[in-house]
Design a protein around this nucleic acid. Structure first.
Lengths: 210, 210
DNA sequence: TAGATTGTTAATCGATTAACAATC
DNA sequence: TAGATTGTTAATCGATTAACAATC
């Protein structure tokens, strides 16, 4: 577990390496050089080697990298060799969409509960998981040792619930709400601001040219 | 429209400025200095001024920035003063969630059509928009002058449909599929790789410490 | 006018790329 | 052994921060 000082840029690239390596495994490719991978991914071979060497020497001179091994190692670095207990807070369209997305479960992110404030949703089941009311959260988190909370509710709701999560020992928040959460240092926040993304698209669409 | 050479990092920060300025307008704040904004946003005042001056001098010495004016100007830079015609391709949970998300519409991104390959969904309506079959896409895009396609379908489907979109004049793709699309330079691609995001969360969760 | 704060230039810092010795 | 390719150091490039003159 000794590392740190790894830049955000590097961490951001790891899932992409992981994805390409997964595809290579599917294609039954056994070994790959940083140069071949560089061609596939449109990054420099130098960057690939630098990135990987932040975590250790996974390759072999004259040979390259063993695809399966490297895939496994990056998986471990990303923490994908473990399972995580998750709740989804906000059972609207997006929340339900994420709850239904089984691929996350396959990667080890298990949805243990879905929560909402709307009493009309109480007891309604999404993929076999009944929707609970938000006031049950503190107990639920502690009882089920929930590590990750996915926030798919409006801004104000997210801001209200976030400190409660922190108080009850949530370790990470996957935040889809359109706001920046201010939480203690020991709570990891990963933001997915879809409207920011759409605005970037819009910018690029308008400014793409000579 | 003269610019370019604006770095990705800057463009990525613009929506966040825009969001904070919107909040300030709601809070009836009329003017703000780069220093105050810096405190709110946890970025350096220097960076704020540098970022903005990529696009012009929006402030005034001794005064700061007029919130409403700056908000408008950033909106224009992001292209939010226009409307866009959009289709959503893939009417699964995520596609339907996005189709139901009215805030996008309010920002000018209008969903004109929803498409799927599953014949059982044909004619089903989402927020009043009936689901069409993917083979109708080329005609639909041209007829309705669609500029943006949102891809919320599996990898293989996305890879199949993407070139068809490009051929029929789509200008930008908002890609939620778990794959990198290879398209002509004149098609903007904005990726939202949710599982990459979840992996970054997982990394940070495991490596947060001393 | 004095004070505040921008716009912008210069300095620093960090990340990417290039180069090459080590070694399989 | 010769060839290939890594791991790693050094060079370059770009982005962030600091500083300050311009000016409202």
């Amino acid at each position: 577990m000794e590392d740190h000082g790894i830049s955000k840029a590097v961490v951001k690239r790891l899932p992409r390496y992981y994805r390409y390596l997964g595809d290579l495994i599917e294609a039954k490719v056994e070994r790959i050089s940083s140069n071949e991978l560089s061609d596939m991914m449109n990054v420099t071979a130098s960057q690939i080697r630098q990135d990987l060497n932040n975590f250790g020497g996974f390759g072999q001179q004259g040979y390259g990298y063993n695809v399966k091994y490297l895939y496994q190692e990056i998986g471990k670095i990303l923490g994908l060799d473990k399972t995580y207990s998750m709740v989804i807070i906000g059972a609207g369209n997006l929340g339900q969409a994420l709850a239904n997305y089984v691929k996350f479960e396959k990667r080890g992110f298990v949805v243990k509960g879905i929560f909402d404030i709307n009493p009309r949703l109480k007891g309604v089941a999404v993929r076999g998981i009944e929707i609970r009311m938000v006031d049950e959260l503190p107990e639920f988190i502690r009882e089920h040792k929930i590590q990750i909370a996915t926030l798919t509710l409006p801004k104000t709701g997210a801001e209200k619930v976030a400190p409660i999560l922190a108080e009850n020992g949530i370790q990470a928040i996957w935040n889809f709400a359109h706001t920046d959460l201010h939480l203690p240092e020991n709570v990891v926040v990963e933001n997915v601001h879809l409207s920011d993304s759409l605005m970037q698209l819009s910018y690029n669409l308008n400014h793409l040219n000579q």
